[in-house]
Amino acid sequence: MAKPDLTTGSVTSAPALDMRDACFEELCQIATADRNVVVMTDDMGAFSLEKFEKDLAPQYFNMGIAEQNIVSVAAGLALGGKRPFIYGISTFVTMRCYEQIRVDLCCMNLPVTIIGSGAGYTYGSDGPTHHATEDVAIMRALPEMTIFNPSDPVLTAAMVRMAYKNSGPAYIRIEKGPLPCLYAEQHDFQRGFEVLRPGRDVVIVATGVMVHSALQVAEELSNHSLDAGVVDLYRIKPIDEGALSSSLGQAKRLITIEENSIIGGIGSLVAEIMAGRSRPVPLKRIALPDRFCCEYGNREWLHAYQGLDVKSLAKTILEWK
């Protein structure tokens, strides 16, 4: 995998780090300094979470498989002055307890962070129960909610810290495995998106793991004389609409690529923002179809099956007239 130079768009090799390690090592540091930070899991482990449990045992709670209770208890802890971080598989910690998130966290705007592991097809052959493909849509609809979808370990750690400093509820979708670093340690992530690669002909907006695919797609497109830019939309909510609209408005054509349902994800988000502009920009949304995927294979296989692999993506874009 490759790391783009943010000023030139050129690419260098970069080390891959586990996204969960990046998340929990940062959280461990925060919780060591602030003993009000607590981690609550629905019986979901991670290697780097074991260190948290060992070093900060009084701040660690395996709540069992009871997501509704986790969210309500987290709300109570937050009202009692604690800073809860909930960790579990994305589908379960967003969907099983959605109403608790809406009423207990969002209605009262409480500082509780939900860390969902397994964005999109991370869990591959585990099937649709484990595919987080509608979580962006439902979480976007909640007032007060902040949504982060980091694309690299540096961003993951930064998002954990930003969620900690946030005064309301947040949802961080993290990857289960390693991803190469795209950003420098001291990068400023306040804006919510980053132009990783400028492009004259087309601009691809992606989020999470698909940012890496988008960068490879852009390389592939350059072999076909198509100059493609890449935007990493790492904060899905709130959006700096003016800045994003202004940045994307420069493009001749826009593509969104995501490992979410075509309904309600970043394709919808970009369409909503760009629909308000006086000068229309042609937009193509590439996402998962509106159906459950009951075909089984690993993430790579599923991407190819759904047309989200680099080759298929490049072909789709090249064929878009």
Binding site: N69, V71, S72, V73, G76, L77, G80, V103, D104, C107
Partner: peptide, 18 residues
């Protein structure tokens, strides 16, 4: 804030734990 049923005991348990 309540109104949806079944939430209050969990919130209370969180407050008691805090």
């Amino acid at each position: 804030s309540t109104g949806s049923l079944g939430h209050g005991l969990g919130i209370a348990a969180g407050l008691a734990l805090a």
